[in-house]
Computed example of a mutant assay.
Amino acid sequence: MADEVKLHGFRGSPFGCRVEIALNLKGIEYEFIQEDLNDKSADLIKYNPVHKKIPVLVHNGKPISESLVIVEYIDDAWKGVPILPRDAHEKARARFWAKFIDDKCIPAVFKALGSHGQEQAVAEAQEQLQFLENELKGNKYFGGDNINLVDISATYLAYWLGAAEEALEIKVLTKDKFPKLTEWCENFVNCQTVKDTLLPREILVAFYKKRFGKA
């Protein structure tokens, strides 16, 4: 009997995109259920009563929520391409950097964008991004030659940030300051597994222009 896999998400969410990338890496067929974030479905509320947020993966009727928790679940539940390293120390490091991206990097970048490029906010975001620049160590991906949990965690930085920068006409992740991170962004979004999950850039740019009053 085939697994029944459903993903409650929203096209255009970088957090839902993380889960789609993981599913694609494993070659898992799934049903995508588009949620209206202003009128969430009864199923979404039932499956994620604590946060009432997307994404939620439902595997054979059992729900899992929170994007990075879901990605780890996918890695545990299905064989195929590994998403987390098998070595205990390397696995712990991957989890550390994934948490760092969520707790430090993305909030700092959000603050810089929300300030419309205010110098201090941009400097604070760049301070966090520098840690990721150093961590890449010249590798193609944070996982070395293959995409891993850290790469998936940084999906927002790879694609959404550039669209927001274009819409606001500011730069946070600059090529001169972050040559390795810029190259990583290109490698990541041009990987077919990732590319298949992404909205066209012009849609995101238009969204950010409207959101930040630039339209």
Rank of each mutant, 00 (worst) to 15 (best):
F142P: 04
C17E: 15
K175F: 00
K171I: 02
F188S: 10
A98N: 03
Q130P: 01
I33E: 12
K52V: 03
V5P: 07
P200F: 01
K210N: 13
T197E: 00
I64K: 12
I101L: 04
T155Y: 09
H59I: 01
L84D: 11
R86I: 11
E35V: 02
D151W: 07
D196K: 14
A94M: 09
G16L: 14
W78H: 13
R95T: 12
I152V: 12
N148S: 06
N187W: 00
S41Y: 09
S115C: 02
G144A: 00
N187H: 08
L44W: 05
N187G: 01
G213Y: 02
L7H: 06
E183K: 15
N187E: 02
K111E: 14
G117R: 00
Y30H: 12
E20M: 15
L113V: 03
N148P: 02
G114R: 14
N38R: 12
E66L: 11
E31P: 02
H51N: 14
N24D: 12
P179Y: 00
E35Q: 15
A164I: 06
V172L: 07
R18P: 04
D39C: 10
K46I: 10
A77S: 13
F32M: 07
L136I: 03
K53G: 06
I152Y: 03
A2E: 13
